[in-house]
Write a protein that binds this DNA or RNA. Structure first.
Lengths: 234, 234
DNA sequence: AATAGTAAAATTGTCGACAATTATACTTTA
DNA sequence: TAAAGTATAATTGTCGACAATTTTACTATT
């Protein structure tokens, strides 16, 4: 993952650095989803005081990667199917609106840059081979560009600063790299076209369909798995 | 304000209590928007240690009421017109989707309860007098019910747990109680009808129009003020 | 044997002190 | 006089210890 969250700011303090390490560990599943967090243990592991660790934990809570209860402690969030679907619903709402705003607020330069990026991806051999490159980095890259293009700080903070850490976590833990590469590419093209045409309404509609398609793709998979399980059980 | 944020949980720890007091003070403007926060000063004022205060500050940051920079300190967020409009855009996206989900997921009991609430407000003398009661409590109450009705924890947390503190802050600081009472009442009625009909698409559309109408109302006011200022300057 | 009660251990919350960084006031120099 | 540099003061970040609460292990009672 070379990709960087565009809202991320340099980690200067120790708490920042430990936060980043913990974030990575949670997203990648090195610290299990749903597991309890022991402050003394983690503090010892990272060789920092509990105060500093708690500062880092507060940041993890801010991007919804852990949950805290008073006098009880912290737990890594659980990755459930319901949670995943809820996340997609929320993304559909926020990124849809971001896309509409992008159509209104992006500069011509930004749009040109995004078009170039897509062309770049189109000629990329990885895409032609149907490999996951485009899905992973290219997809996230595209979505980031649109969100930033909204020029709406509120939307940018919510999506890039909070939601996307969870998105990455689900991607890692559920091992999601579905074979939608070429299809997603076409959808991205159409979205950029709508933005380029300054058609906010269409841009939002297309982005929402794009995300909803991913969600339905997952729902189908789940349904299939369920059916398989039940047939095995009998 | 008797109204309670439905996502709020009992404050057991000292940091919780100080957080609530600070939250109130910031929302009401007792601590000025945009002002710098002095940790030693506040800690002394509330008679707590700096550690405990910092815990409270972290929670304020979580609901976007303050912003922190490493080694520099915290500032109360500034209330700008751009920020207000961005907030409305975000609300439109999130609450619109919440309303769609409410149409799909609310139980019949919940819907009936919400209808009763609206009838209650209709017969309320305060509404008939066109007083601000309906707008303040009734409006927020209605929106909360819809959001909770989405049964989507992600949406509920984002809107009730984060956005609405900022909304309240803007309402207080900009002194917003525009005379849209009866109109808003009609709009609420139509939204409930759509939810009752389980028409998610219409419900979302109406909620978005409802919020957009408020936003445009503000934009008009701003434009008017600007025009007045300019005419005075000449 | 199962449950309730109690004591011990562990965990979280809070505190005050010190270290590192930033802001301020003053002096020096061109 | 203005600008740059330096020393001082103030603020934020980090630490280890203690207090309050929760969990665990054990004992006593029915």
């Amino acid at each position: 993952m070379l990709l960087q969250n565009p809202t991320k700011q340099a980690a200067v303090t120790t708490a920042d650095k430990v936060f980043e390490q913990l974030q990575h560990a949670i997203v990648e599943g090195d610290i299990a989803a749903g597991s309890k967090i022991s402050e003394p243990e983690l503090a010892k592991h990272y060789k920092i005081s509990r105060s500093t660790l708690r500062e880092a934990l507060n940041r993890l809570e801010k991007c919804h990667l852990i949950e805290r209860k008073a006098n009880i402690g912290s737990r890594v969030v659980a990755c459930t199917i319901e949670g995943l679907l809820e996340l997609y619903i929320t993304r559909e709402a926020l990124e849809g609106m971001a896309c509409r705003q992008a159509a209104l607020n992006m500069t011509d330069e930004e749009i040109a840059h995004m078009q170039n990026m897509l062309t770049q991806h189109a000629t990329d051999k990885a895409l032609q081979e149907g490999v996951s490159y485009y899905q992973e980095e290219g997809d996230v890259d595209f979505h980031y560009k649109v969100i930033l293009g909204s020029h709406n700080q509120q939307l940018i903070n919510l999506i890039c600063g909070q939601l996307y850490h969870l998105v990455r976590m689900y991607r890692c833990q559920f091992g999601m790299h579905s074979p939608r590469a070429t299809r997603a590419f076409t959808e991205h093209s159409n979205i950029i076209q709508a933005i380029s045409d300054r058609d906010g309404e269409l841009a939002e509609l297309l982005m929402r369909r794009h995300i909803a398609a991913s969600r339905k793709n997952i729902e189908n998979k789940i349904a299939l798995q369920k059916a398989e399980q039940e047939s095995q059980e009998t």
